[in-house]
């Protein structure tokens, strides 16, 4: 088992090393450079050359690569070309909002979708299943930007029960508890929109998987043994459902940090999504490199965790001790 994990960790380190190299190479292979995006006739070619110097882009490529690896491995990440602030500070100020928004949305979508999916599978042909199938498809395929804008217009403008923007009132209320409640109030509408847009995928997936599981022989056997339906569902069917669900949940974690550009834009939230998009389109090498490196790190960690949990949750998967067994 030890050698298995050594191999897995080793391959993960290799993947991260590859990501580091690709991050460096690919961003520099993209057409344009950070200075080319300055479209201002008052900026002379000499001033642009000076800016390249300031960004360190006049140095030999190998030197740039060495500096990039050093800053990535020390989690320093350098200064963002676009914002002029340390990339680490930028991410620190944005990650909490993004995690609060997308973490809670993911969790609530998963819980709601799973519950609805199971209920739909249990009562096949019923109204609930039809509702899940239609509602799930609608939720899964609805254009998020339009839907979120509609929510904003209805619940923040026409019936102003939610705030229009941001994660805090302007000026913010005084006191820790008041601040926390204000924060929750501000995130309520974005989270609600994400849940409404996200639960459908979960519900459809779980319903389909559950229908398949409930048709398996071991379920028939369990029922044949006279086990109560609740125990059949919880002790047998759900046990089969859990590993793929956990895998999806864990593999969704990097997405929780990478942000949701449209949601952040519509609700004027200070999140990672838009920062990441601007970093890529604006040739902000330090910011884009740091963000993708961290995402890769999180993806690798999530994959490892998912492998580990598979062993725990799925009785059919066990790593055997000893060699040659």
């Amino acid at each position: 088992m030890r050698s298995y994990w050594a191999r897995r960790v080793g391959s993960s380190v290799l993947i991260l090393a590859l990501v580091l190299v690709l991050n460096f190479v690919l961003f520099r292979m993209m057409p344009g450079d950070p200075v080319a995006s300055i479209v201002d006739p008052k900026f002379s070619p000499e001033a642009k050359a000076r800016l390249m110097e300031v960004y360190g882009l006049d140095k030999p490529m190998l030197t740039q690569f060495a500096l990039y690896v050093k800053s990535s491995l020390s989690f320093d990440f350098g200064i963002s070309f676009l914002t002029g602030r340390p990339v680490a500070d930028e991410l620190r100020s944005r990650v909490p909002n993004t995690v609060a928004l997308l973490g809670s949305s993911l969790l609530l979508s998963a819980l709601l979708g799973t519950w609805l999916g199971i209920q739909a599978a249990r009562k096949r042909g019923g109204a609930l299943e039809r509702l899940v199938l239609w509602g799930g498809a609608l939720s899964y395929s609805f254009p998020s930007f339009f839907f979120q804008l509609m929510l904003l217009m209805v619940f923040a403008a026409a019936i102003p029960i939610f705030p229009l923007r941001g994660s805090l009132s302007v000026p913010p209320p005084l006191g820790g508890a008041a601040l926390f409640l204000d924060y929750v109030w501000h995130l309520a509408l974005p989270v609600l929109s994400q849940v409404l847009l996200g639960f459908g995928g979960w519900a459809l997936y779980v319903r389909n998987l559950m229908v398949k599981i409930l048709g398996e022989d071991f379920i028939l056997m369990a029922r044949g043994r006279g086990l109560p339906e609740r125990r059949v569902l919880r002790g047998h069917a759900f046990r089969m459902l859990l590993p793929p669900l956990l895998t999806i949940l864990l593999l969704s974690l990097p997405g929780v940090v990478s942000g949701a550009v449209l949601t952040e834009t519509v609700f004027s939230l200070h999140g990672v999504g838009r920062f990441l998009m601007e970093a890529v389109t604006g040739h902000d090498y330090p910011a884009a490199g740091a963000s993708f490196f961290l995402l890769a790190l999180l993806t690798v960690a999530s994959t490892l965790a998912s492998d580990l949990l598979y062993g725990v949750t799925d009785p059919r998967v066990r790593l055997e001790r000893g060699r040659g067994r």
């Binding site: 804008l149 904003l152 217009m153 923040a156 403008a157 102003p160 229009l164 923007r165 941001g166 302007v170 000026p171 834009t265 519509v266 609700f267 004027s268 200070h270 838009r274």
Partner: peptide, 20 residues
């Protein structure tokens, strides 16, 4: 003087119309 950060043009419009 508060400069309220509002990036989405639709949200900007709603904020002005709503007196925010």
């Amino acid at each position: 003087l508060y400069l309220v950060i509002l990036r989405d043009p639709d949200a900007q419009l709603l904020a002005l119309e709503g007196g925010k």
